[in-house]
Design a binder for these strands. Structure first.
Length: 473
RNA sequence: GCUCCCAUCGUCUAGCGGUAAGGACGCCGCCCUCUCAAGGCGGAAACCGGGGUUCAAAUCCCCGUGGGAGCACCA
């Protein structure tokens, strides 16, 4: 059987992280089986579906690198088709007109709730042959749900799930204004698009029986269903805009690489033995629906951090640098400015001491702008009284022939020996002088990246600061 | 309320009748060290409860408990 999967988000303002994982699963499954992956936008809710909301989803997909073979398809463009199917069902008798007023329906529901039974339509219009005399307004169309027997969904994740058809009522497939409803359009779309595998959130598991029944009424074999569990926040609660971390774009903005997010997401609810890190090719080779977990999983932010750092360290520096540049820009830094250090070298130097690109950008500020002031504690500890060391360093560094880490390292250790000091007593004043604070990549690499001119300029400024501080105390 | 789903370290998970219940993140030690990290080594840490089935149960069944989802002229 040829595989066609689909991702069908409704545009609600952003690409939800859970939706992104579902999309990823669908995408991987299609790729794995040489099938097709379709993107379908469920925009029948005209209120919520804005161009911005649709763009947010497309942007999220493209940032993650999840491409699609077909689409985006929009349901709002398919109303004629839905109408056609509804008419056919009316003709065949698998659907019927219901004239019950909203008031009656509300009353019915209220009564049932009061009697503590499951609210459902009582089928009053199910056997009507013509409109009742007291009918007011346009009728809705309901699906004639079979009431006997069971509908079995052989879910690829949850296993065999049986629904008693008596539990299912005749759901509305078209409103009084003629517009089709969700459970119906999904069915028509899945049928028309030849979807073979419906992989979606398990909040839809209950819908699958009725959808399967509509499909059968249309004479079509239902697709294979796979309902994947939800993603919860770190506290085990439902993710929301309020708690944050729900939108894919928040992860980009927080400094995560798409590779890290993909790897993190795929391991949330899916595992391949003990392997933690996967290339895309490996995922395509290994991914299978049957290995998806049955239960919801909570976000583990520190594990994402770890993966992100892993990818920052191991992905080609040039690739990481492209994302890094974007974050530098967000800080108002132009990585392409004259005298700016080689950005790939900065990435290599900072990757092992940053969890995110945002952190990397903040820690790398001093490479691009001279420190306006020194970290107070660090300056007091390392700069005060270090005038002689700074002088010696200035002299030694001015002499260095090839401004490379190895030569710089020799010069610095030379000063330490000559002054009878431990390396720390030399490197730390130097570090504070050039970076403004107590933390930076190895001092020789830091200096190489900064360039001799900038280093000597910063040393002179530090020397001046030492004198001034000494004078004022 | 009814229907459906779920349940292994704090978290992500491996396990699919016989294991000292494994790995990862995080945490705690030690080593390395010019800072911060990274890295190496080691450690603490789990089968929700109760019944069955079986020679044997984290694994299979039932009940309970606890989470979650669905029950709209929303998607």
């Amino acid at each position: 059987m040829s595989v066609t999967t689909r991702f069908a988000p409704s545009p609600t303002g952003y690409l939800h992280i859970g939706g992104a994982r579902t999309a990823l699963f669908c995408w991987l499954y299609a790729r794995r089986h040489g099938g097709r992956f379709v993107l379908r936008v469920e925009d029948t809710d005209r209120e919520r579906s804005t161009p911005e909301a649709i763009n947010a989803i497309l942007e999220g997909m493209s940032w993650l690198g999840i491409d699609y073979d077909e689409g985006p398809l929009y349901q709002t463009e398919r109303f004629d088709r839905y109408r056609e199917v509804i008419d056919r069902m009316l003709e065949q008798g698998t659907a019927y007109r219901c004239y019950c007023s909203r008031e009656r329906l509300d009353q019915l529901r209220a009564d049932q709730q009061a009697r503590k039974v499951k609210p459902r339509y009582d089928g009053r219009c199910r056997h009507l042959t013509e409109p009742p005399a007291d009918a007011e307004g346009d009728p809705v169309i309901r699906f004639r749900q079979p009431h006997e027997g069971h509908t079995v969904v052989d879910d690829q994740v949850k296993g065999r799930v049986a629904f008693d058809n008596a539990e299912l009522d005749d759901l509305i497939i078209a409103r009084a204004d003629g517009s089709p409803t969700y459970n119906f359009v999904v069915v028509v779309d899945d049928m028309d698009m030849g979807i073979s595998h419906v992989i979606r959130g398990d909040d839809h598991l209950n819908n699958s029986a009725r959808q399967a029944n509509i499909l059968k009424a249309l004479g079509v074999e239902p697709p294979v269903y796979a309902h994947v569990p939800m993603i919860l926040d770190a506290e085990g609660k439902k993710l929301s805009k309020r708690t944050g971390a729900a939108s894919v774009m928040e992860y980009r903005d927080a400094g995560y690489l798409p590779e890290a997010v993909i790897n993190y997401l795929v391991r949330l609810g899916w595992a391949h033995g003990d392997q933690e890190v996967f290339t895309l090719d490996e995922l395509i080779e290994y991914f299978d629906i049957g290995e998806i977990n049955h239960s919801a999983s909570s976000l583990n932010p520190s594990k994402l951090d770890w993966l992100n750092q892993h990818y920052m360290k191991t992905l080609p520096a040039a690739h990481v640098a492209r994302h890094f540049a974007w974050h530098l820009g967000a800080l108002g830094i132009d990585p392409g400015a004259a005298h700016a250090p080689n950005i790939e070298a900065v990435v290599s130097a900072q990757a092992e001491r940053s969890k995110t690109l945002v952190e990397m950008a903040e820690n790398s500020r001093f490479f691009y702008t001279e420190p306006r002031e020194y970290d107070e504690k660090a300056a007091r500890k390392h700069l005060l009284g270090a005038g002689d060391v700074l002088d010696a360093l200035t002299n030694a560094l001015a002499e260095v022939e090839h401004w490379k880490a190895e030569a710089i390292h020799q010069a610095v250790t030379g000063v330490a020996e000559e002054q009878g000091l431990k390396m720390g007593k030399v490197a730390q004043p130097l570090r504070v002088a050039v970076s403004g604070g107590p933390v930076s990549p190895p001092i020789d690499i830091t200096l190489e990246l900064l360039g001799r001119e900038a280093v000597l300029r910063r040393l002179a400024a530090a020397r001046e600061w030492v004198d001034q501080s000494a004078a004022s105390h």
